[in-house]
Amino acid sequence: MSEVTEKSAQKGKEQPIKASEFDSTFKYELQKISGSENILKCFQCGTCTSDCPVARYSDSYRPRTLIHMAQLGLRDRVLNSDTLWLCAACFTCTDRCPQGVEVASVIRVFRNLAAEKNCIPQVFMDQAQSLLETGYAYKIPELRINKRESLGLPPLPKGNPENVKKTLKGVKFFQNIQKPEGEKLSDQ
Protein backbone atom coordinates (compact mmCIF):
# COMPACT_ATOMS: atom_id res chain seq x y z
CA MET A 1 0.00 0.00 0.00
CA SER A 2 1.42 3.40 -0.92
CA GLU A 3 0.57 6.76 0.60
CA VAL A 4 -3.04 7.28 1.71
CA THR A 5 -4.73 9.99 -0.33
CA GLU A 6 -8.22 11.39 0.01
CA LYS A 7 -9.12 9.54 -3.17
CA SER A 8 -7.86 6.16 -1.98
CA ALA A 9 -9.42 6.74 1.44
CA GLN A 10 -12.84 7.26 -0.14
CA LYS A 11 -12.56 3.96 -2.02
CA GLY A 12 -15.61 1.78 -1.61
CA LYS A 13 -17.55 4.34 0.38
CA GLU A 14 -19.85 5.10 -2.54
CA GLN A 15 -20.95 1.45 -2.63
CA PRO A 16 -24.29 0.85 -0.91
CA ILE A 17 -24.09 -1.46 2.11
CA LYS A 18 -25.58 -4.92 1.52
CA ALA A 19 -27.30 -6.86 4.29
CA SER A 20 -24.85 -9.72 3.75
CA GLU A 21 -21.95 -7.48 4.82
CA PHE A 22 -23.09 -7.31 8.43
CA ASP A 23 -21.25 -9.69 10.71
CA SER A 24 -22.84 -9.45 14.14
CA THR A 25 -20.05 -11.50 15.75
CA PHE A 26 -17.37 -8.89 14.96
CA LYS A 27 -18.14 -6.69 17.96
CA TYR A 28 -17.97 -9.64 20.35
CA GLU A 29 -14.63 -10.67 18.87
CA LEU A 30 -13.38 -7.13 19.46
CA GLN A 31 -14.58 -7.23 23.07
CA LYS A 32 -12.18 -10.10 23.67
CA ILE A 33 -9.11 -8.36 22.21
CA SER A 34 -6.88 -6.30 24.51
CA GLY A 35 -7.40 -2.65 23.58
CA SER A 36 -10.93 -2.87 22.18
CA GLU A 37 -12.69 -4.43 25.20
CA ASN A 38 -14.86 -1.34 25.69
CA ILE A 39 -16.02 -0.88 22.11
CA LEU A 40 -19.67 -1.46 23.00
CA LYS A 41 -19.58 1.38 25.51
CA CYS A 42 -19.30 3.90 22.65
CA PHE A 43 -22.58 5.83 22.44
CA GLN A 44 -21.52 7.85 19.39
CA CYS A 45 -21.13 11.24 21.08
CA GLY A 46 -18.41 12.21 18.59
CA THR A 47 -15.91 13.65 21.08
CA CYS A 48 -13.15 11.58 19.44
CA THR A 49 -13.80 12.89 15.94
CA SER A 50 -14.33 16.49 16.97
CA ASP A 51 -11.05 16.56 18.95
CA CYS A 52 -9.05 14.62 16.36
CA PRO A 53 -6.35 16.77 14.73
CA VAL A 54 -6.19 14.44 11.71
CA ALA A 55 -9.95 14.56 11.15
CA ARG A 56 -9.63 18.32 10.83
CA TYR A 57 -7.63 17.90 7.63
CA SER A 58 -8.97 14.63 6.32
CA ASP A 59 -12.34 14.32 4.63
CA SER A 60 -12.41 10.62 5.39
CA TYR A 61 -10.78 9.77 8.74
CA ARG A 62 -13.51 9.68 11.39
CA PRO A 63 -12.83 7.55 14.47
CA ARG A 64 -16.48 7.66 15.54
CA THR A 65 -17.58 6.33 12.14
CA LEU A 66 -15.04 3.51 12.23
CA ILE A 67 -16.26 2.45 15.66
CA HIS A 68 -19.88 2.64 14.56
CA MET A 69 -19.11 0.52 11.51
CA ALA A 70 -17.44 -2.07 13.73
CA GLN A 71 -20.38 -2.09 16.14
CA LEU A 72 -22.65 -2.73 13.17
CA GLY A 73 -20.44 -5.60 12.04
CA LEU A 74 -19.02 -4.12 8.84
CA ARG A 75 -15.79 -6.04 9.31
CA ASP A 76 -14.40 -5.86 5.78
CA ARG A 77 -15.22 -2.20 5.31
CA VAL A 78 -13.41 -1.35 8.52
CA LEU A 79 -10.36 -3.53 7.94
CA ASN A 80 -9.97 -2.66 4.26
CA SER A 81 -10.30 1.04 4.96
CA ASP A 82 -7.22 3.08 4.12
CA THR A 83 -8.31 5.71 6.61
CA LEU A 84 -7.34 3.44 9.53
CA TRP A 85 -3.73 4.33 8.85
CA LEU A 86 -4.25 8.05 9.17
CA CYS A 87 -4.53 7.99 12.99
CA ALA A 88 -1.48 9.80 14.40
CA ALA A 89 -1.79 8.01 17.77
CA CYS A 90 -1.78 11.30 19.69
CA PHE A 91 -4.20 9.71 22.23
CA THR A 92 -6.34 12.85 22.52
CA CYS A 93 -9.44 10.76 21.80
CA THR A 94 -8.44 8.17 24.40
CA ASP A 95 -7.97 10.82 27.08
CA ARG A 96 -11.20 12.67 26.32
CA CYS A 97 -13.65 9.82 25.65
CA PRO A 98 -16.37 10.11 28.31
CA GLN A 99 -17.07 6.38 28.06
CA GLY A 100 -13.49 5.16 28.49
CA VAL A 101 -13.50 3.44 25.10
CA GLU A 102 -9.73 3.97 24.57
CA VAL A 103 -10.42 4.99 21.01
CA ALA A 104 -6.77 5.03 19.87
CA SER A 105 -6.35 1.47 21.12
CA VAL A 106 -9.48 0.37 19.25
CA ILE A 107 -8.03 1.87 16.06
CA ARG A 108 -4.78 0.03 16.83
CA VAL A 109 -6.72 -3.25 17.10
CA PHE A 110 -8.33 -2.58 13.70
CA ARG A 111 -4.88 -1.94 12.23
CA ASN A 112 -3.45 -5.10 13.74
CA LEU A 113 -6.31 -7.13 12.24
CA ALA A 114 -5.78 -5.43 8.86
CA ALA A 115 -2.04 -6.15 9.11
CA GLU A 116 -2.75 -9.86 9.53
CA LYS A 117 -4.09 -9.67 6.00
CA ASN A 118 -0.89 -7.80 4.99
CA CYS A 119 -2.91 -4.73 4.21
CA ILE A 120 -0.42 -2.18 5.55
CA PRO A 121 1.38 0.96 4.33
CA GLN A 122 4.91 0.46 3.02
CA VAL A 123 6.51 2.51 5.81
CA PHE A 124 5.72 -0.27 8.33
CA MET A 125 7.19 -2.94 6.06
CA ASP A 126 10.41 -0.92 5.81
CA GLN A 127 10.63 -0.60 9.58
CA ALA A 128 10.00 -4.31 10.08
CA GLN A 129 12.74 -5.15 7.60
CA SER A 130 15.13 -2.81 9.38
CA LEU A 131 14.25 -4.34 12.76
CA LEU A 132 15.11 -7.83 11.52
CA GLU A 133 18.39 -6.66 10.01
CA THR A 134 19.63 -4.24 12.67
CA GLY A 135 17.42 -4.40 15.77
CA TYR A 136 16.55 -0.74 15.25
CA ALA A 137 13.46 0.68 13.54
CA TYR A 138 15.67 2.48 11.01
CA LYS A 139 18.78 1.47 9.15
CA ILE A 140 21.14 3.94 10.78
CA PRO A 141 23.94 4.61 8.26
CA GLU A 142 27.39 3.30 9.29
CA LEU A 143 28.79 6.75 8.64
CA ARG A 144 26.56 8.23 11.30
CA ILE A 145 27.34 5.49 13.80
CA ASN A 146 31.06 6.00 13.24
CA LYS A 147 30.73 9.78 13.43
CA ARG A 148 29.66 9.51 17.08
CA GLU A 149 33.24 9.16 18.29
CA SER A 150 34.39 12.39 16.64
CA LEU A 151 31.43 14.16 18.24
CA GLY A 152 32.48 12.96 21.67
CA LEU A 153 29.58 10.51 21.99
CA PRO A 154 29.91 6.96 23.32
CA PRO A 155 29.53 4.14 20.77
CA LEU A 156 25.96 3.18 19.89
CA PRO A 157 24.95 0.02 21.76
CA LYS A 158 24.42 -2.96 19.44
CA GLY A 159 20.91 -3.75 18.27
CA ASN A 160 21.47 -7.54 18.42
CA PRO A 161 19.06 -8.49 15.61
CA GLU A 162 19.71 -12.19 16.18
CA ASN A 163 18.23 -12.00 19.65
CA VAL A 164 15.37 -9.83 18.38
CA LYS A 165 14.51 -12.51 15.84
CA LYS A 166 14.64 -15.21 18.51
CA THR A 167 12.17 -13.37 20.71
CA LEU A 168 9.82 -12.72 17.79
CA LYS A 169 9.56 -16.40 16.89
CA GLY A 170 5.92 -17.37 16.48
CA VAL A 171 4.66 -13.78 16.12
CA LYS A 172 2.08 -13.84 13.33
CA PHE A 173 3.06 -10.52 11.78
CA PHE A 174 6.68 -11.53 11.28
CA GLN A 175 5.73 -14.93 9.94
CA ASN A 176 4.02 -13.07 7.13
CA ILE A 177 6.97 -10.90 6.23
CA GLN A 178 9.36 -12.24 3.68
CA LYS A 179 13.04 -11.59 4.17
CA PRO A 180 14.86 -10.27 1.07
CA GLU A 181 16.46 -13.68 0.45
CA GLY A 182 13.00 -15.18 0.37
CA GLU A 183 13.35 -17.08 3.65
CA LYS A 184 10.86 -16.54 6.40
CA LEU A 185 11.66 -15.73 9.99
CA SER A 186 9.68 -18.76 11.06
CA ASP A 187 12.01 -21.02 9.03
CA GLN A 188 14.92 -20.37 11.34
Binding site: A89, R108, A115, F124, Q127, L131, F173
Partner: peptide, 12 residues
Protein backbone atom coordinates in the same frame (compact mmCIF):
# COMPACT_ATOMS: atom_id res chain seq x y z
CA UNK B 1 16.60 -2.64 20.26
CA UNK B 2 13.71 -0.53 18.99
CA UNK B 3 11.43 0.30 21.95
CA UNK B 4 8.51 -1.31 20.11
CA UNK B 5 6.28 1.71 19.53
CA UNK B 6 6.61 1.85 15.72
CA UNK B 7 5.32 -1.73 15.56
CA UNK B 8 2.24 -1.27 17.74
CA UNK B 9 0.05 -0.33 14.75
CA UNK B 10 0.87 -3.55 12.92
CA UNK B 11 1.47 -5.97 15.79
CA UNK B 12 0.69 -5.20 19.41
Amino acid sequence: NCCGLPFDPVSH
